[in-house]
Design a protein around this nucleic acid. Sequence first.
DNA 1: CCTAGTTCCTCTAGCCACTAGAGGTTCAAG
DNA 2: CTTGAACCTCTAGTGGCTAGAGGAACTAGG
Lengths: 141, 141
Amino acid sequence: MDFSIGELSRRTAVKVPTIRYYEQIGLLPAPPRSEGQQRRYAKAAISRLAFIKHSRELGFEVDAIRTLLSLQDRPDHSCASADAIAKARLAEVESRIASLNALRLELTRMVDECACGRVAECRVIETLADRSHAHGPLALE
Amino acid sequence: MDFSIGELSRRTAVKVPTIRYYEQIGLLPAPPRSEGQQRRYAKAAISRLAFIKHSRELGFEVDAIRTLLSLQDRPDHSCASADAIAKARLAEVESRIASLNALRLELTRMVDECACGRVAECRVIETLADRSHAHGPLALE
DNA sequence: CCTAGTTCCTCTAGCCACTAGAGGTTCAAG
DNA sequence: CTTGAACCTCTAGTGGCTAGAGGAACTAGG
């Protein structure tokens, strides 16, 4: 009926210490314990943890996941804030993609132009040293 | 002739505590000090710091930058390892772009399909709860 | 020369989301 | 009853900074 943390880990592919960490920060409710104080989970824990896992894979921060989880528990509530969170994340991802594309362009140029001889004429080193290539800050990588 | 850490910060747009941090981890050499123990930089520090800054903007890790800097100091050496570092970073960026594109697709679908009514029929929440959407681990975000 | 205000110094702790390890207990199979 | 895997708590470390405390040193104006 109920199962151990190791079993939960196997069924969700979330590592055991990570599960304990999620409990500690309040993403997962503290489950009942066995006589010897070991955690015993019910089936509901699987779907909750899967929800968290999928959210993390999409890059939602823990705070956002907390909000999304609490929304999930109130089916009659408006889902506007879930929508807003997802849209914000989408915007982040898009701007991240844009800046990575710029990086790719510059890295490609560096690598392509390097004749790969001595450092003195190396385009890679040269480009890095060139102060005119100013970017904005990297924001989140 | 020489200038303070604040001046160096202004000229490179690298924050003062960051400059001290770079010194601490050995990216920047420790400069001479004034009588009152304040750092006094020579012009060379600007280009070295600019090199570091540009490298960070391109996403190179500190260890890689250490290698790149030491190569820069040896102009007669082969630049093969600089090339290798840049290529590795390019590969990282490309795989990162690919996974972000997958995320964007999924987020777009979620957001587009959400009729934005009650949570009970919210596509955002529904998608997150759906265990069949298994991704690999997020690697580096 | 004095003072006020800015800049500088070191040191410690915090950020995020985990991950690793020590040192000890409990469980399940044989 | 014994063995060995899995579990427990707790602390500390990761990367690349950033923030703040508490105090010393510079610099411009009077």
